[in-house]
Amino acid sequence: METIQILLLAFVQGITEFLPISSSGHLVLTPLLFGYELQSLAFDVSVHLGTLLAVMLYFRTEIVRMVAAVLGSTRTRSLENPDARLGWMLLLATLPVVLLGLPLKSLLEYLRQDDTLIAFVISGTTIGFGALLWWADWGGKRARDEYSVHWRDALVVGLMQAIAIIPGTSRSGITITAGLMLGLTRRAASRFSFLLAIPTILMAGALETLDLLEAQDPTDWLALGLGAAISFAVAYLTIHFFLRFIERISMLPFVIYRFLLGGVILFLVW
């Protein structure tokens, strides 16, 4: 991979993983738009590792509290501690991905075989789920925080997340949409979505790493390290500024971006 390609893809992954605009769609579209070959599985794993480290570092205090509280709740059999309840709800919301991930992964591999088909899919999901995000942001009550999530809410968010493997859907976008539909504030829906990314990316990364080891392809460790470092730095800054300003700016800028992006893709492949 050329250095400019590595920097471009790592930047794209870092900024799109946690914004509601679809990182997987952008990682597929970027090489198509700039005339590069689709990047290797190893590079995808490395930039996802960078974003995983970023979200874990950003929420390190919350993670430590939740792990301690969840372990404590297994002894006391009580969910009175808000951190314990949130931790269990995040684990519950991960279950749909565990159950549906492999079948949907097969669908993704099928779509990636046809550039025109996947471009149409990305265009449709970018626009369609962008409209759903706008509706949820406009009509949501925005009155609850992430600690109020109960088991039904967690399953709804988890089921919505499971379909995000389809490019253009956006994992963060669909889970934030679900949170807003359930009455969470923009910040609370975003925080729950970002925390939920940790077990989800861990599992996806583990599966991709197994595929990578089985393939035994030659590895450019310098490219992987650079990609991970850039995606880590960009993702950390993205999380920080997104959570800081989201209550003020609303979801509208991201909805408009999704509409424009979907329209451009549709125009290019029509």
Rank of each mutant, 00 (worst) to 15 (best):
F194H: 07
L207P: 08
F194S: 02
A197H: 08
L224D: 08
G205R: 11
A215T: 01
E208V: 01
L213E: 02
E214L: 08
L222Y: 09
E208C: 06
A215K: 12
T219K: 12
I201N: 01
L207G: 08
T209D: 07
A206E: 10
L222S: 13
D211F: 04
F192E: 00
Q216W: 02
L212N: 14
G205Y: 13
F194Q: 06
D220W: 06
S193A: 02
E208W: 11
M203L: 15
F194D: 02
L212E: 15
A204T: 03
L224M: 13
E208G: 13
T219Q: 11
F192W: 05
L196Y: 07
L195W: 01
T209K: 02
T219E: 05
E208S: 08
D220N: 10
L212T: 14
A204Q: 00
L195C: 01
Q216D: 14
T209S: 01
L210A: 13
L210C: 08
F194I: 10
E208R: 14
F192A: 10
L195R: 04
W221I: 11
A197M: 05
L213I: 15
S193T: 03
A197R: 06
E208K: 15
A215Y: 07
T209V: 11
D217Q: 15
M203F: 05
P199R: 06
P218T: 11
L207E: 09
E208A: 15
P199K: 00
P218Y: 07
I201A: 08
L207K: 11
L212M: 15
L213S: 09
